[in-house]
Design a protein around this nucleic acid. Structure first.
Length: 287
DNA sequence: ATTATATCCTGATCGC
DNA sequence: TGCGATCAGGATATAA
């Protein structure tokens, strides 16, 4: 479910509700989460809530001299963070995996499939290097070109790699390839400068637009207050197999790459350059 | 070194 | 209606 735009939407809603609140109690209900050592975080005050790749980071300022603590939550496939103000009752407590009680309310971590993670990381214990933030200033066409260089991976699987660009998942990978008018099976390292520019533009515009619409609800994404994202209706190719391309009316096709669905418009996203198609059909005619 | 596959889970949906 | 098979938006460890 949650890719960069969905996590960004969650973070934007969570930040004003959490900022300045003090963490009072943590209850881990899923044994898979029990390894998280939250004790140093207790009593800490929320300084800021930001997104890092697909993760939510809640930074707590520590009061007992233990240093600041970063609470990192990865929602994976089905995780949700739900803010519950004091006196509000949760509408859905099934699959509740953790509750974090703050002054004035609590944060519920709900995750049916239990792939999600919660970690309490002392500031300074930095994670290993991750990929580039696609919406940051550092993400330029030149930088993207460098990341793509020499990769023999197919473009769409390449877009899913979190060690290159962070935040792109299966839905937006297809959407981005369509927007860039690049076939998902193109070899990532084979893009010409003009195509890299289109990809760069597509990555940023698709993600920004999805954020504007509050993310995509596929089956079970919901934001902090339980509302669903409005980007689903805007999808150009994802989950639209057999429906007509919004741009050229050709039926959208679905195929599988690395065991995951890929959607594209075979006409807007030709695998070979148009000139080559013309050339090969001419060759056929002359034969 | 890169890239592909199996795996962690549960719930929803599909075909019989 | 019931039942098993299949699929789902992520990421990592292991294999090729």
């Amino acid at each position: 479910m949650p890719e960069l735009p969905e996590v960004e939407s969650v973070v934007r809603q969570l930040a004003p509700r959490l900022r300045g609140r003090r963490l009072r109690e943590v209850e881990l209900l899923d044994p898979r989460l029990r390894r998280a050592d939250f004790r140093p975080a207790l009593g800490g005050t929320v300084e800021r809530v930001i997104r890092i790749g697909k993760q939510v980071e809640i930074r707590l300022r520590e009061t007992r001299g233990c240093g600041n603590i970063r609470l990192l939550c990865h929602l994976r496939m089905t995780g949700r963070l739900v803010w519950l103000a004091r006196d509000e009752t949760p509408r859905e407590t099934r699959h509740l995996r953790a509750r974090l009680r703050f002054d004035g309310g609590e944060l519920l971590f709900i995750d049916p499939r239990r792939f999600g993670t919660l970690r309490f990381v002392p500031e300074g214990c930095e994670a290993p290097a991750a990929g580039l933030e696609p919406l940051s200033r550092a993400c330029t066409p030149v930088r993207l070109s460098g990341l793509l260089a020499r990769s023999r991976q197919e473009l769409k699987p390449w877009l899913l790699r979190q060690d290159r660009l962070v935040g792109i998942g299966n839905i937006y990978a297809s959407e981005i390839a369509f927007r860039a008018r690049l076939h998902p099976r193109r070899t990532a390292g084979s893009l010409r400068p003009e195509e890299v520019r289109r990809l760069h533009q597509a990555v940023r515009s698709v993600l920004r637009r999805a954020i504007r619409f509050g993310g995509t609800t596929f089956s079970d994404f919901a934001d902090v207050s339980g509302r669903s994202g409005r980007f689903y209706a805007m999808l150009a190719v994802y989950d639209r197999e057999g429906r007509l391309c919004r741009r050229c009316r050709t039926p959208i096709v679905r195929f599988v790459q690395q065991q995951r669905s890929t959607y594209c418009c075979p006409r807007c996203q030709p695998l070979r350059r148009l000139g080559m198609l013309v050339a090969s059909s001419r060759a056929r005619e002359t034969r």
